[in-house]
Design a protein around this nucleic acid. Structure first.
Length: 269
DNA sequence: TCGATCCTGTAG
DNA sequence: CTACAGGATCGA
């Protein structure tokens, strides 16, 4: 499941392969992907435009097109975005594509079709960005900032980290891994963490994500799977019942916000 | 703040 | 065959 690092890797790849390309035709094959917009509206807004800029904001991929249109793509769980040599040879899970000249094109592939693709104005993107917390790999994300935000929240640490309006880009996997590395229990109310713990958590978030970006950029390879959790060494994620590599106690799974949280009962009090 | 919803592949 | 997985959004 793509989180910040995987989305970053996709963005860099798309930037290298699709920047400056003119989209001669846009095709959307699944209405649910663009809802509440219509497939016609989205196709019309994209067709004929040139990709001028590729950016990531939180887990969103932003394609700035000529004429002021911005395409916002969210891969959610199983989405993927990649350039192919011929868009006509598409598999069943391709939900949309943007065709370049010579049948090359950018493909939005998503088996579960939970991903999203919308067209916006730049202003709308700015408004949306204003609802998101700081990027954890930006200079904006400082220990002092985290301390202020933490003081104001009684949320369990895991949910705090995954809330995009607080910090943007962390998902289930890297939130769990950051908490493990900082030795913070996922259910710990944020406002009960003291400075040393917050410092450890801040460092863990930054290093986990930076490492994962490197890993994702290396392992991510076009169509097919992300390297994601397979390539990135997880200590606790999806390791229920396995021995913690630090203290040998068994990794546990609990439910938070309807999702699985993995943690080590020995390392994370 | 919590639960339902969207989807379909995979595990059971 | 059913249950479950899960990010973001929306309604209760």
């Amino acid at each position: 499941m793509p989180e910040l690092p995987e989305v970053e890797a996709v963005c860099r790849k798309i930037q290298a392969e699709a920047l400056g390309q003119k989209i001669v035709r846009a095709a959307v094959f699944r209405a649910g992907i663009v809802r509440p917009q219509s497939t016609d509206e989205v196709e019309a807004a994209i067709t004929g435009r040139t990709i001028q800029c590729v950016e990531r904001r939180a887990k969103n991929i932003l394609l700035y097109l000529s004429g002021g249109t911005v395409v916002r793509i969210h891969l959610r769980m199983t989405g993927n975005l990649y350039v192919v040599l011929d868009v006509r040879l598409r598999s069943a899970s391709v939900r949309a594509y943007f065709e370049f000249r010579g049948h090359r094109g950018l493909v939005f592939d998503d088996p579960r079709a939970l991903g999203r693709l919308h067209v916006h104005t730049k202003d709308e993107i700015d408004q949306f960005a204003a609802t998101l917390g700081p990027e954890p790999l930006s200079p904006e994300f400082t220990l002092d900032w985290l301390a202020v935000a933490a003081r104001a929240s009684r949320k369990p640490a895991k949910l705090f980290l995954m809330d995009q309006s607080t910090i943007s880009g962390l998902g289930n996997i890297y939130a769990a891994e950051a908490l493990f590395r900082a030795r913070v229990h996922p259910a710990k109310p944020m406002n009960r963490l003291r400075r040393p713990k917050l410092k450890a958590l801040h460092e863990a978030i930054v290093t986990v994500l930076a490492d994962a970006v490197q890993s994702a950029c290396i392992t991510y390879s076009g169509p097919g799977n992300f390297g994601e959790a397979e390539s990135f060494p997880c200590f606790v994620y999806d390791r229920e019942g396995e021995a913690c590599s630090i203290c040998r106690r068994l990794v546990r799974r609990m439910s938070q916000g309807g999702r699985s949280t993995y943690y080590c009962p020995g390392c994370q009090k």
